[in-house]
Simulated scan of single mutants.
Amino acid sequence: MKVIVDEDSCKGHGICTTLCSEVFALNDYGYAEAVSEDIPDDLHEAVLTAKDACPEWAIKIVDESES
C-alpha cells in the first residue's frame, strides 16, 4: 500500500503531520507531502487515522498495482 497527498486539495492544516509525522511532513510552502509513500506495517493505522482526519480529503491510499 502507498499513500499519496493530493497537492491540489491540501490546504496545509497539518493534521496528518501531527498524527503521523513518520509518513507526513509539511513542505517549504506549508502543504503536506508524504515523505514515505510506502506505508510501513506498524504505521498503517496511524496513516488511516490521518487520512480520515484530513478536512480536505487530500490523502489517498492506493494499492501498489494502481499507482
Rank of each mutant, 00 (worst) to 15 (best):
A53S: 15
C54K: 02
F24M: 01
V47T: 09
L19C: 11
D38C: 13
L43T: 07
S67P: 02
W57C: 12
D6W: 08
A50N: 04
G12P: 06
H44R: 13
A58D: 08
N27T: 08
A25F: 01
C16L: 03
E45Y: 02
K2L: 13
G12F: 04
E56G: 03
E33D: 03
T18F: 01
E56D: 15
M1Y: 05
I4V: 14
T17C: 09
P40G: 13
W57S: 15
D8P: 02
S67K: 09
E37G: 11
T18Q: 04
V35K: 14
L19P: 08
S9M: 14
W57D: 15
H13M: 01
E22G: 11
Y31D: 07
Y31S: 03
Y29V: 10
H13F: 10
M1F: 09
G30T: 05
G14T: 10
V5M: 04
D8C: 02
L26D: 05
C16K: 03
A53D: 03
S9Q: 14
I4R: 13
F24H: 03
S36D: 13
E66A: 03
I61G: 11
F24Y: 07
D42E: 14
A50W: 01
H44M: 15
L26I: 05
G12V: 07
C10K: 03
V47W: 05
I61C: 12
V47P: 04
I59G: 02
D28G: 08
I39W: 07
I59W: 04
D52Y: 10
E66V: 02
D38H: 15
E7P: 07
N27H: 11
W57T: 09
S21V: 01
D41M: 03
D28S: 06
V47N: 04
S21T: 04
I61A: 12
E56P: 05
D28M: 00
D63Q: 13
A32T: 11
I15L: 08
K2F: 10
N27D: 15
I4Q: 12
D41A: 12
E66T: 00
D41N: 10
G30E: 07
I59H: 06
L48R: 13
V3I: 09
E33K: 10
A34G: 07
A25L: 09
E56N: 15
T17D: 12
I61W: 10
V3G: 05
Y29A: 12
D63I: 01
A32L: 08
A53R: 06
A50F: 00
L48C: 11
V5G: 01
D28P: 00
Y29L: 11
A58M: 08
D52I: 00
Y31K: 07
V23G: 06
G14S: 10
E66H: 00
A50V: 00
E22D: 15
E7T: 08
V47R: 06
L26Y: 04
L19F: 05
I61N: 06
D8L: 11
L48S: 11
H13L: 00
S21G: 08
I59M: 10
I4A: 04
H13W: 03
D52S: 15
E33N: 08
E66F: 00
S36R: 11
V62N: 08
L48M: 14
E22R: 13
A32G: 14
S65T: 07
S36Y: 02
K11T: 14
E45H: 06
C54D: 02
V47C: 07
E56F: 12
L43D: 11
I39E: 08
A53M: 02
I61T: 15
D8N: 15
V35P: 05
G14W: 04
